[in-house]
């Protein structure tokens, strides 16, 4: 077991754990944000650089700090490592810069984007970003590509996290899309226009941190915060059938996988559950899902406050009001 200190909080972790995973074991505000890392996808991470942290002490044996900020999602911990996340001004500055870079060519069309309200980039810029940017340039635009009748690709919003590529690689039998070209014109596409049809391809929508991949069956139907996310299940031959049904009254507007507190799917679901089963009769509704208080979806949803959710200072750090 390795002892790691992150923002003055100590945790014991197994060898081979990354800094980000160790931070998630502590929980709360010490967890660096992650836009490209996805714990269930092998090889993901290291690309968006939002999870950069400062290693003030490499290990107990080698107390020197690491010369550069490191990506916490892909750096394994050492015994006696001391990591600074929010306690390092350098990290806070770098994170502001990264948010600025990510938003540089993002169209900011949140008012018409289906992802708004559950968008990781929205949350990230709200928490860590600056109020204004120095950029006056035109934003990058891509021609519209059609990748099938179920998934809408909106390349202008993409932050090239590669999550959907890994999903298609690791979940489906054949990947039909990938990253084309390079640099700031690189884009997600199928190259020769064809539909992404695999039965598990819909999970690309759920892993996408922004509104680049959205559900065509739910397009412009409703804002997510008007809907009630309900746990539901059905007997599905190809997946677990455990889903979140987004309901308005007795109608199911859309079906997604169940996401945990870091926005990652607990289980991947099949396209049949996601796109075809919109009749409440298809599902056994279990009950409402817990919603984070700070989420826009929680507006007008009243829950009994739990004891822990009272804000209490722990060593100068506010606990996340989960």
């Amino acid at each position: 077991m390795f002892k790691v200190t992150i923002d003055n909080q100590q945790v014991d972790v197994e060898e081979g754990t990354t800094i980000l995973q160790a931070a998630r074991m502590i929980g709360g505000k010490v967890v660096p944000p992650a836009m490209c890392y996805y714990s269930k996808l092998r090889g993901s991470g290291g690309k968006c650089r939002t999870c950069l942290v400062k290693v003030a002490q490499s290990s107990a044996k080698d107390p020197r700090p690491m010369p550069k900020l490191v990506a916490s999602c892909s750096t394994p911990v050492q015994d006696g490592m001391v990591v600074q996340n929010l306690t390092s001004p350098e990290v806070v500055e770098a994170r502001k810069a990264i948010v600025e870079f990510l938003l540089l060519n993002h169209p900011l069309d949140c008012p018409v984007c289906d992802q708004a309200g559950e968008c990781d980039l929205q949350d990230l810029s709200f928490r860590y970003g600056m109020e204004e940017t120095g950029s006056e340039e035109d934003r990058r635009e891509f021609p519209v590509t059609d990748i099938g009748d179920k998934i809408k690709l909106h390349m202008n919003r993409c932050i090239l996290c590669y999550r959907c590529v890994y999903t298609a690689d690791q979940l489906t039998d054949k990947r039909l899309h990938g990253v084309l070209y390079r640099g700031d014109v690189s884009e997600i596409g199928t190259f020769i226009q064809q539909a992404v049809t695999n039965n598990f391809s819909g999970n690309m929508i759920d892993v996408c941190p922004v509104g680049a991949l959205t559900d065509k069956t739910f397009r412009f139907k409703s804002r997510v915060w008007f809907l009630n996310p309900m746990n539901a299940h059905r007997d599905c031959p190809s997946c677990s059938g455990n889903v979140t049904a987004w309901m308005f009254g007795n109608e199911i507007y859309r079906v997604t996988g169940r996401k945990n507190q870091y926005g990652e799917l607990e289980e991947f679901i099949c396209n049949e559950c996601r796109f075809e089963k919109k009749d409440p009769g298809d599902w056994v509704i279990e009950g409402p899902r817990h919603i984070k208080r700070q989420s826009v979806i929680s507006a007008n949803h009243y829950e009994r406050m739990k004891k822990q959710s009272v804000i209490k200072p722990i060593e100068g750090i506010m606990e996340d009001p989960e």
């Binding site: 870079f101 060519n105 014109v185």
Partner: peptide, 13 residues
């Protein structure tokens, strides 16, 4: 290469 955001966006900017 366009893989990580500071380089992809920053060089163009």
């Amino acid at each position: 290469c366009g893989q990580c955001s500071p380089c992809r966006e920053g060089t163009g900017w």
